[in-house]
Structures are given as structure tokens and as C-alpha cells.
């Protein structure tokens, strides 16, 4: 399995650490009801098909990325850099579009 890091390009799975469902990056507000925290900490979907999860490029650029992949076909569909919570949504995409995925490194 290969994952395309937005910064490093196509890399072998061994360079990444798996961290589970991408919902883990969507932390509830501090005053959210206990059910929201329970769901955030303990409940995960296990879809046959498209899923989003978190990977850490530990033997690479040290970026946290969100990978969309298909658990049935094993296709890796897309990956984006995760931004800090205060910038989520806005800059995560813009980082991807601003910097050309490098080859070499670069976009292979």
C-alpha cells in the first residue's frame, strides 16, 4: 500500500503511523454533552467502502494527514494536511493547493 503525502509525494506505507478514524481530529467543545465526548472517544464506524483516517508521516515530513481510502478496493483516493484546530477547513485545503506536491520527494 502506498500513500501520497501532500508534501513528500507517493510513499510506502511503512513510513506512516496509523491513528484511526479522522473523527478523532474533530474534538467536541469543552462544554459539549457527555454523549458527544463518549462518541468522540469510543465510537467509530467501520464502513465497507470509503473511509477517512489519520496517518502520521513519522519516517517522513512529520505531518499529520487525513487519508480517504476504500476498505473494499484498497484504493487510496486522496490525502490532505491537517491544520491546527483554529485554522481547520480554511488552511488545510489551501496548503494543498498553494504548495505543489513535490517530487523527489516530488509528487510521484
Amino acid at each position: 500500500m502506498r500513500i501520497t503525502c501532500p508534501l513528500c509525494g507517493s510513499r510506502d506505507r511503512r513510513e506512516f503511523h496509523y491513528y484511526g478514524g479522522a473523527v478523532y481530529a474533530e474534538r467536541p467543545a469543552a462544554d459539549a454533552p457527555p454523549e458527544a465526548w463518549d462518541g468522540y472517544l469510543h465510537l467509530r464506524d467501520n464502513p465497507a467502502g470509503e473511509t477517512r483516517d489519520l496517518w502520521y508521516h513519522e519516517l517522513g515530513c512529520s505531518a499529520w494527514i487525513e487519508v480517504t481510502r476504500n476498505t473494499v478496493t484498497h484504493a487510496v483516493l486522496s490525502a490532505r494536511l491537517l491544520a491546527g484546530p483554529e485554522r481547520q477547513g480554511r488552511s488545510a485545503r489551501s496548503i494543498l493547493t498553494k504548495k505543489k506536491p513535490n517530487s523527489g520527494g516530488k509528487g510521484r
Binding site: 510513499r11 511503512r14 513510513e15 519516517l59 517522513g60 512529520s62 523527489g104 520527494g105 516530488k106 510521484r108
Partner: peptide
């Protein structure tokens, strides 16, 4: 090293952070 280091893919002044065996 598990990346393509041929000149076409990894030219002069290209840099990669990757693995050497199990090392960073």
C-alpha cells in the same frame, strides 16, 4: 531507502525525509 532515487525522480538538490532501513 524506499523512494525512487533515479535522476528523473530525484535530481540535483532534491531532498527527501525517509528511511534508511528502519532509521530516520
Amino acid at each position: 531507502v524506499p523512494v525512487d532515487l533515479s535522476p528523473a525522480a530525484f535530481g540535483k538538490a532534491d531532498v527527501a525525509r525517509t528511511a534508511l532501513g528502519h532509521m530516520m
